[in-house]
Amino acid sequence: MGLEKLKTVLKNERTSKSLELKTPIIGASGTYGYNSEFEDFIDLNCFGAISTKGITIEKRLGNDGDRIFEVQNGLINRIGLENVGINAFIKEKLPVLRQKNIDFLLNIAGSTIDDYEKLAIIAQENDIKALEVNVSCPNVKQGCLEFGLNPNSLFELTRKIRRNYDGFLIVKLSPNTSDIKALATAVEQGGADCISAINTLRGLGIKIDYVGNKFLKKTVQGGLSGTCIKPVALYMVNQIRQAVKIPIIAMGGISKLDDLFEFILAGADAFQIGTANFIYPSICSNLAFELNDFMTKNNFKDFEHLKGAIINE
């Protein structure tokens, strides 16, 4: 493939736990399916990993009604964590990931600390290399958002997952807070190896049509994603970088090569691509190739050197 330059190692220096990625580009949870859904559009060897759809203990059907609302340069979703549940994931989805040799982060979500512990134990038992903990889904009424916004409960949650899981532990942070540094610190102290950020922002979409002397109204409240959230994501990643030493997987509106550079300067060690997959289904591998071409043309030996150059020059 010739993407050796892009090999990325995310390493928690304190514990020496690390995660090796073929490239620093990861398909974000909820936009990449469970395993090989994108194989018609990309070479599965040409990107770092996929983060699976958020998995809960039980199967979930998600929210009724409209789930998608398009806004200027973005998208509001209220899927509501629809997923097959951990048992079906282990039985039906995991074998495909393994058989096709797809690197992945298992994204998990729960409504109680107990749920997260159980999911961590199952991940441990099934030798899953990396776990991404969703503590911040804005689309479910109970559960993860409450943990995600309080540093004390987030610390406790991270610690309990850590006790049950030896692999590479990533906690995904919510931007819907006034103090992201406190959340990041809590996660690091709780024993996480890495932070991914940001999850979607809370948003409200409203559409009003005036038809036949009447206002027809539609409102959709959910998580906002897409290029419109990039400045918020850059700010949050930068704040997290100032607060912690563990690596950061950055996401929020990434759709082109320049965005990767900007996130590196803000503090990113790897990237996730979300909403852009819906528009350009090949984007995860295309960005890897573009990054590789840039590095080859400009004599950057590897991704670490590129990062160093962007940060220090």
Binding site: E37, I68, E70, I79, F278
Partner: peptide, 25 residues
């Protein structure tokens, strides 16, 4: 339905069917 991904991953364009006596997405 309004669609986001158009390839089945995002679960944005769900309808409910009754198949094999079970309701599913």
């Amino acid at each position: 339905r309004v669609m986001a991904c158009s390839i089945g991953v995002c679960r944005g364009c769900i309808i409910k069917l009754v198949r094999d006596n079970k309701i599913d997405n």
